[in-house]
Design a protein around this nucleic acid. Structure first.
Lengths: 110, 110
DNA sequence: CTCATTCATCATAATATTGCGATGTAACAA
DNA sequence: TTGTTACATCGCAATATTATGATGAATGAG
């Protein structure tokens, strides 16, 4: 089949999974890291840094943009991407809420 | 192509992406959430909760186990899965280091 | 206008993922 | 031993993802 049964899961689960997808590929991690460091990113700069084709990088940027993590503005002939603060803070909060739900059982488990 | 160019990225980027995969599918999020709540999970319990076939759930559990997030022990005829505290705390730390690298530029960006 | 630059999009190929039925295996009960 | 339960694994089909070359659109330089 290959199709995710989205209707089986809660909105929260689907949303977290969507955000998680942003962090599930090393190229996207690398793009995000680049953005965190330089506070901007331009497709052509990433070609050298990532060693991927321009079309591939453009596709990853589009995905991150669709998820909402990044946003971009036209800057002459190039695009200037940056992290979307609202989305970033929201996902940080959501994942931390998940992370903090774990309490170390110290021995009553596997 | 469809094959990720792992060699293009740093170990850190590949590792984060691997951990991110655990959170990139709603079924795996649901399994993790179930584990956080009940501190254990058994394949057959999840069949009803997730509405997926037993084989599918087993596959997701195997993935989470391979990543290292969960571990399981035999409990009679069933398997008792739980979160691996070491891995959980490590990934929590790693993602928070990433999350905290962002500083809101308050206006000097897109 | 013409040309170069930059990025998006399209079309395509290769691989990965998701999902499930069928089957195999291990443990326990009777 | 036989049957049952619970899970893993196999094999397969359908869809998704990753990656690239080719092409198209927009901007700025000359």
């Amino acid at each position: 089949m290959g199709i995710t049964k989205t209707q089986n899961f809660t909105d929260e689960q689907n949303e977290l999974a969507l955000l998680g997808k942003a962090f599930s590929h090393p190229a996207r991690i690398a793009i995000i890291m680049h953005l965190l460091k330089s506070q901007q990113c331009i497709n052509s700069h990433l070609i050298e840094e990532l060693g991927l084709a321009q079309a591939t990088i453009s596709q990853h940027l589009k995905e991150l943009k669709t998820i909402g993590i990044i946003q971009g503005t036209v800057e002459g002939t190039s695009m200037n991407y940056c992290i979307n603060p609202v989305c970033w803070n929201a996902l940080k909060k959501k994942f931390n809420e998940l992370f903090d739900q774990f309490e170390d059982p110290t021995g009553n488990c596997c």
